[in-house]
């Protein structure tokens, strides 16, 4: 399996998709840095300014998260199905290796690369905010916890894509990945709106509608929990040790935090996807 991990990592570095996403990321970070330089030009001291700054940070992380998801799709959608479609799999699986080793090896190899890339993106966005003088005081524990959840989302997404790539064709895997990510994203937004409706006390009707939207968000989180992990990341990053939270309201923030049960679910979700993908792949005729 070590060989598969090693060569998967090497292959990703040599792929054009990686180069494309790297260029895109640099472009994004440059534009973001330019934006920050203009925003932080005027002095800011009020609590509203800090909330505004947390909104800017959340927006930066939201789009960085989006670019990482883009990289995950581009680099992994054909990780196994592509090997089958091109025929390179014949010379690999006729060797004395088990098929699950290929699935897990690909997952681990891609995970290493994605964690590295995702960490660079996260630390760049947070670092740029600190550099330009954000008034949000980040503790190391905030940054590390935030980083953990920022990296976890793409890994969960990768598990879904690897499982799908082990069972379906590249094109079908691409459709599944994009649809699932889109559903999770929309579901997450609906859940935030639902929470806002409940908190703003808009009457019994508003409470009921808010609850329905929250339920819709929970269901989409079960399909692909990337958005819920993203919300957890903002919560961990922006909640101070004093208990004060700068979690913002709106599209990029997180007003509702996932429960511990959701994270137990996420753990089993990943294990199940990899197990099921490897099992179905082992039974496949190639």
């Amino acid at each position: 399996m070590i060989t598969i991990i090693k060569y998967t990592f090497k292959e990703m570095l040599k792929k054009r998709a990686f180069l494309l996403v790297s260029i895109l990321s640099l472009l994004y970070l440059s534009i973001y840095a330019f934006g920050l330089s203009k925003i932080f030009e005027r002095p800011s001291n009020s609590i509203y300014d800090i909330i505004f700054q947390s909104e800017i940070l959340s927006a930066g992380l939201f789009f960085a998260n989006f670019i990482v998801a883009f990289l995950v799709v581009l680099t992994s959608v054909n990780s196994i199905s592509g090997e089958i479609e091109s025929g390179t799999i014949y010379s690999i699986l006729s060797k004395p290796i088990k098929r699950y080793e290929l699935v897990l090896g690909k997952f681990i190899g891609l995970s290493i690369m994605i964690v590295l890339y995702s960490s660079i993106m996260f630390l760049s966005v947070v670092g740029l905010n600190i550099w330009f003088g954000s008034k949000i005081s980040f503790g190391w524990d905030n940054i590390l916890k935030g980083l953990f959840f920022f990296d976890l989302g793409p890994i969960v997404f990768l598990a879904l894509i690897i499982a799908s790539s082990s069972i379906f064709s590249t094109i079908n895997t691409g459709i599944i990945a994009i649809m699932a990510y889109g559903i999770a994203l929309v579901g997450g937004v609906l859940e935030q709106i639902g929470t806002a409706m409940q908190q703003s006390q808009v009457g019994a009707f508003g409470l009921k509608s808010g609850e329905s939207l929250i339920n819709a968000g929970i269901i989409t989180s079960l399909i692909l929990p990337t958005d819920v992990i993203y919300r957890k990341m903002t919560a961990e990053l922006l909640t101070q040790s004093s208990g004060i939270s700068f979690m913002t309201q709106g599209l990029f923030g997180g007003m509702s935090q996932p429960s511990i049960y959701m994270f137990i679910y996420i753990f089993f979700y990943m294990v199940f996807l990899l197990y099921y993908g490897a099992k179905r792949f082992s039974q496949r005729d190639l």
């Binding site: 091109s86 025929g87 390179t88 014949y90 010379s91 006729s94 004395p96």
Partner: peptide
């Protein structure tokens, strides 16, 4: 089985390599 492939060499008909 993995054991059955230990001392086997194979050149596929539609050979494609990385």
């Amino acid at each position: 089985t993995v054991e059955s492939r230990e001392k086997v060499g194979f050149l596929p008909e539609n050979f494609r390599y990385h």
